[in-house]
Design a protein around this nucleic acid. Sequence first.
DNA 1: TGTACATCAGTGAACGCGCGTTCACTGATGTAC
DNA 2: TGTACATCAGTGAACGCGCGTTCACTGATGTAC
Lengths: 245, 245
Amino acid sequence: VTPSSSEPADSVVPTVARTARVRARIELTEEIKRVGRRHLTENGAAGLSLRAVARDVGMVSSAVYRYFPSRDDLLTALIIDAYDAVGEIAEAAEANGRTRATSTRLLEVCESVRAWARANAHEYALIYGSPVPGYAAPVATIEPASRVPFVLLRLVVEGVERGDIEPGEPAPLPRALRTDFAKLRSLAAPAVPDTVLSRVFALWAQVLGTINLEMFGHLHNVIRDYDAFFSAQMRRACEFLVTGR
Amino acid sequence: VTPSSSEPADSVVPTVARTARVRARIELTEEIKRVGRRHLTENGAAGLSLRAVARDVGMVSSAVYRYFPSRDDLLTALIIDAYDAVGEIAEAAEANGRTRATSTRLLEVCESVRAWARANAHEYALIYGSPVPGYAAPVATIEPASRVPFVLLRLVVEGVERGDIEPGEPAPLPRALRTDFAKLRSLAAPAVPDTVLSRVFALWAQVLGTINLEMFGHLHNVIRDYDAFFSAQMRRACEFLVTGR
DNA sequence: TGTACATCAGTGAACGCGCGTTCACTGATGTAC
DNA sequence: TGTACATCAGTGAACGCGCGTTCACTGATGTAC
């Protein structure tokens, strides 16, 4: 086994030489993010503090600047990680049920998103709750942010191909909207009619809306069994997406 | 015109005597909230600071404590005001269209909520975004928080009475959920079947979900005409609530 | 394999800032006789 | 109507705290010859 076997052949610097310091760096970067994530839970995004994180990692606060050039960069890293985490979970759910019906597969994706949200409430709030004031999300967050919606779109594209999804009766749409849908179609949803695209947005909005209602306390004293509630609501929503009624 | 004409007859203390100081108090309380609301816009709920508010009101920071016993009490007041503001707007929309079809009236309520949300983004985030970390909403917020959902429920109750709303095919629901729905029915939605209650939650979730998608930036570079998008989505959602398909 | 130099991680002190809340006080406004 | 007292609004200083970020530094790790 040559040391360069897992590296591109044109890599000049040998991997072994890099390891010791580089490895420590990678591990500490992870450790900082891990602690940051924990602090998010307790204080929310606005309360995320480099000094507090440094303290918990066991470093002096200025040392963290070797890893993240500013507080906002740490926040960005946590946001990207969160998007990637739900994205991965949703993609796993997508891969799971290749043989099942489209509406079942959609339902499983919705459930997986909710399960992740409940297990990582703070990170969920970070990416799908109110934006952090004074923080502007950089472009690097766009791609990870689109992973879950793309899962839904792929399932729908497949469903349309298989004839699993009924287009339903088209309603007249304003031109601007038809253009947006056309762009989306050419980008990620070939052959999916406007009616169905509209229903995908409806489903996605309802997923996030229902999770928000539940997690942000708006169902207190109204619904007791959140699991049953979410499942029932989503079952119907996915059915609607597929059948158009 | 006697001074007591606008007061209950059994009010012992004459109203005139109260005015000077009491009026100043009322006005300053309002002024503090007004400034607080403005600060919310710039710094978000977590960044709302009594000191900064005091500065802008033109008081020394400790003086604010004559009006609000703590920062969290100011926050609570702002939250209640926000709920009351959307509540009022939704109720106005409800009152507007007495003669129109149920789905039209529902649509108008949805549009009114979104209009308020766009005009008061920070307050919207305060009540429907992620909860403020370390802040627990007191019971006094519950009633104002329920005003908008109750508007939707009233419209639906009326729609059912008039035969405007089709129950659709009942799906089997877990017992816990049927109990929750039954409680809600006996409280605020007589004669509204489970199928329709479920659709009310679906609509409400979709309203908030769609507004969140729009306002928290998740539709960037995907949808350009947010007005058209929201209207189209909600038109379909309200139709679904009414017809069940 | 050994040495001289360069790179990098982490330290500790400091700057300048803002926060919530308390407290003893002054002076204005309201009340009772 | 006038006076003595009570209530209340607002002041200014203080307590104790935490924050992000910079900077000159020490000492360990890595590199080139």
